[in-house]
Amino acid sequence: MKEELIISGRMNPHIDPVMNIWHWSIPLYLFLGGLAAGLLFFAAYQTIMGKDKKFLTSVRIGPIVAFGAIVIGLMALLYDLHHPLYFWQLYTTIRLDSPMSWGAWTLMLIMPLNMIWIFSYLKDIYPVHKCKLGFIRKIAAWIITTNDTKPEQDWDWKHKIIRDFEKYIVKDRKPLAWAMAILAIVLGVYTGILLSAFNARPLWNTAILGPLFLTSGLSTGAALLMIMTKDHFERISYSKIDILLVIIELFFITHWFMGYQAGSEIKVHTVSYFLGGEFTVTFWVNVIILGLTIPLILEVMELMKFKIPVIVPGLLIIWGGLAFRFIMVDAGQVIRYLY
């Protein structure tokens, strides 16, 4: 038996009695970042494959939701900083060794691209004649001109420079889509690498976390698109993609646990928290059963022509992704080296 006690009464806030320096805002951000990465990746992927006319929700609405998710995530991150007014220090340097620096710069690049993407589809998704709010039309009049005679295309940008820029983007969307696809993958992987780079936290310190978080992010993105779309073909396509992603995710988690079981003393100790220890019930019920297995079964049943409301598997997948981040961040801080 081994027992270790701090006897001088150390009680540093957020460090003692258990490490809790990252609380709800970090896992929330990791979830939203992964979700945004998934949505942006699918928008870019469908464009690259030339299917942007078929997958309208993914290319038009998905990026808007992704942008909102990133903004909320960034607000959570800013809230988490203890010296928030100094956040600009992130952009005075590029540190290749630091995952957080990678993340900050990736967000710096992906957000303008995301805005350009939304801008390029604005005319298609928002005909002014449908807008009932008079004050929005008044504000919009600063930058747009309306033309009520053409109901399909009833407004245009007032300034020529904006019209030219739009024409330039819309002419060939593929370069933008490629840049977006690559950055979305970097964003998705980074949410995992952020945790896996800490050799001090045995639960996080595994290379599989990068691909695992990316897969989970893509799968929550696909689930959200599945819920949002009204098009039957698009919904079934994302349902199929999601089945594949969930299977990959289960495969990664199995490998992860197997690797830990066959690992050094600290890794065996770590995985015991999930196989009989403190986090067993939370992890298996929320992530494995509710978040992955049940939606997987429901989606397969739907493909076999059973009537399943799409919102059920969709929300379960999203719940699983959210719970997975919270459990990972929490458990990772509880499990530490004993010396």
Partner: peptide, 12 residues
């Protein structure tokens, strides 16, 4: 320092 807590997590 922005107080992100990254170094705190990194310290064994």
């Amino acid at each position: 320092c922005i107080g992100c807590g990254s170094c705190i997590e990194a310290c064994p």
